[in-house]
Simulated assay, not measured.
Amino acid sequence: MTDDFYRNVGGIREPDPTLGKSVQPEPAPEPVLPEPEPPPRVRRQRVVLAEPSRSAGSLRARVELEQQTSWGELLIKDLIKVQLRSGVALALLVLAVLGALPAVFFFWPSFTDLRFVGIPLPWLLLGVAPFPLLFGVGLWYNRLAERHERDFVDMIEN
């Protein structure tokens, strides 16, 4: 055997334990991950089939509506009548405003000669003004309809 195989330790020749083994770097320590947070506690919710806050009258009204009895139909017809009345009133308002423009042009011919920023005023009134008017009346009707529906639901539940 060769001298490379042995090492000299204190005058005694022993086999070199590192000989024949490949030298590898030490593995890097694994990163320590933080422990996952426990999921938030879910509050238990009590489920009640019949709410004590609701009166028997509101339950009766709901049953009348669901079963489409004569009283339930009367309630629905009343809601439809109120919605129709609002719609017709706002439609008449739009017709009155837009229908008055030709009358103004007929009775005051000098009105057609007026200009605004170089554009004839009748063109602006007939071509531009109706759109914001219709949009505003549409919003107004939508709010009225929602108010009538809220009143109807409040009447049924109380």
Rank of each mutant, 00 (worst) to 15 (best):
T2M: 02
T2S: 05
D3Y: 00
D3A: 10
F5R: 11
F5I: 05
Y6T: 12
R7H: 07
N8T: 07
V9C: 05
G11M: 10
I12W: 02
R13I: 12
E14I: 14
E14K: 13
E14Q: 11
D16W: 01
P17W: 11
S22C: 00
S22L: 12
V23A: 10
Q24H: 11
Q24M: 12
P25Q: 09
E26K: 06
P27F: 01
E30D: 06
P31S: 13
P34T: 14
E35C: 07
E35Q: 08
E37C: 01
P38E: 07
P39E: 15
P39V: 05
R41L: 13
R41G: 04
V42Y: 04
R43G: 00
R44A: 15
R44S: 10
Q45E: 08
V48G: 01
L49N: 09
E51A: 14
E51K: 08
E51C: 13
P52S: 14
P52C: 09
P52R: 12
S55P: 14
A56P: 07
G57N: 14
A61T: 08
A61F: 00
A61V: 08
R62Q: 00
L65I: 06
E66A: 04
Q67F: 03
Q67V: 03
Q67S: 02
T69K: 07
T69V: 09
T69F: 00
S70E: 15
W71R: 14
W71F: 15
W71D: 09
G72K: 07
G72P: 11
G72L: 00
K77A: 06
D78N: 15
D78V: 08
D78E: 15
D78P: 04
D78W: 02
I80K: 14
I80L: 13
I80Y: 13
K81Q: 07
V82P: 00
Q83Y: 10
Q83V: 05
V88F: 05
L90A: 11
L93Q: 07
L93D: 02
V94A: 09
A96D: 12
A100W: 04
A100G: 13
L101A: 05
P102E: 02
V104S: 04
V104H: 01
V104P: 03
V104N: 08
F105C: 10
F105W: 07
F106Y: 06
F107M: 06
S110P: 00
S110K: 09
S110A: 15
S110V: 03
F111Y: 13
T112Y: 01
T112L: 14
D113I: 06
D113Q: 11
R115F: 06
R115E: 14
F116G: 05
F116W: 09
V117Y: 05
G118K: 08
G118I: 08
I119R: 04
P120W: 02
L121H: 12
P122W: 04
P122H: 04
W123A: 12
L124C: 05
V128F: 01
A129Y: 10
A129T: 05
A129F: 15
P130Q: 10
P130R: 07
P132K: 09
P132A: 09
L133Q: 09
L133I: 07
L134W: 00
V137T: 15
G138Y: 06
L139V: 05
W140H: 09
E146H: 06
R147H: 06
R147E: 09
H148L: 15
E149P: 00
D151A: 12
D151Y: 04
F152A: 09
F152H: 15
M155K: 12
M155H: 13
M155S: 14
M155C: 06
I156H: 01
E157T: 10
N158S: 14
